[in-house]
Nucleic acid binder design. Structure first.
Lengths: 151, 151
DNA sequence: TAGCTTCAGTTAAAGGTTTAACTCAGAGAG
DNA sequence: CTCTCTGAGTTAAACCTTTAACTGAAGCTA
């Protein structure tokens, strides 16, 4: 069974994509650590919570939205809890779930941090891509993540 | 100075892209660990070396091609050296540089591992993207990484 | 030649992530 | 009612990555 080797064209594309997935995360991290003292993933957790009803979500829901494993989320939320940005409590409706809630100081942290983050996203991504490519990027990302989810 | 908030459309795109950059690396890692017992980054280092003249490169060159920091590369190469896949020696032409060379067993490891890797790349990326989107993906990735490099 | 500087590379420590084992609440079967 | 099963969440250990400090080779200046 002969493997399906990449064409030269595909190799170029693949190398470019690998460059992207290796560099973009660390670029986002750099900006967040420099300007807000937290990692990009910390911010993702806080900002995801900030958009939820009551600014509260179950840990497992939050993990799914933030594309994280539950152990990873658990560690990070423990850290955020020490800063008093998040608080955890068992779900009164079903003790198996844990509700994570954004505190007022956590909300303030998001508000203070969001502008620098969106500026960076604009600068790194949207400023350099014409509208048509922005549309393609959404479609491409969804198609690839859909396959991965299917596994 | 009002921050340049993302439009709804841009938010969708951004979320999709974040999903991609969080999931694709771990999907690649999963396949490599399962089928070859090494990380995707280990493979990237080995395969990059395998394409170099004499299968030999300076550490700093290799770090640049593999988009890695030098400390990270140094650790990984130390590990690969223990498996006798790579050997290091000072550059005779200039003792400040270190040459990393792929051994014969290292070459065999790449040959044995490549088919499973390319199959996975085809499956996750190229199989789900029409040619036009493949072209866009290359262009998009290059534009974004170019900005990041510029920093 | 001595001494300063620069830069490649390694090493050590701190922090983050993953994997596997464990705890515990609720649901269902007998 | 009790036993078992399932699945959410935490914890511990191994591993990996980053940051900062260190080593050592070559070049430059006096």
């Amino acid at each position: 069974m002969e493997p399906r080797w990449l064409t030269d064209e595909q190799q170029d594309t693949w190398r470019a994509l690998v460059g992207l997935i290796l560099r973009l995360p660390s670029a986002l991290d750099t900006q967040m650590r420099r300007d807000a003292g937290i990692s990009h993933f910390d911010y993702l957790v806080l900002s995801t919570l900030s958009t939820a009803p009551e600014r509260t979500m179950r840990m497992s829901e939050l993990a799914a939205e933030a594309e994280a494993s539950l152990p990873r989320l658990s560690q990070v939320v423990a850290k955020l809890e020490k800063q008093d940005w998040v608080r955890r409590a068992p779900d009164p409706a079903d003790g198996r779930y844990t509700l994570a809630a954004l505190t007022d100081t956590g909300w303030e942290k998001v508000v203070a941090t969001a502008p620098g983050h969106v500026d960076e996203v604009q600068r790194l991504v949207f400023d350099v891509l014409p509208k048509a490519q922005q549309r393609e990027l959404k479609e491409i990302s969804r198609r690839v993540t859909r396959v991965i989810e299917g596994d």
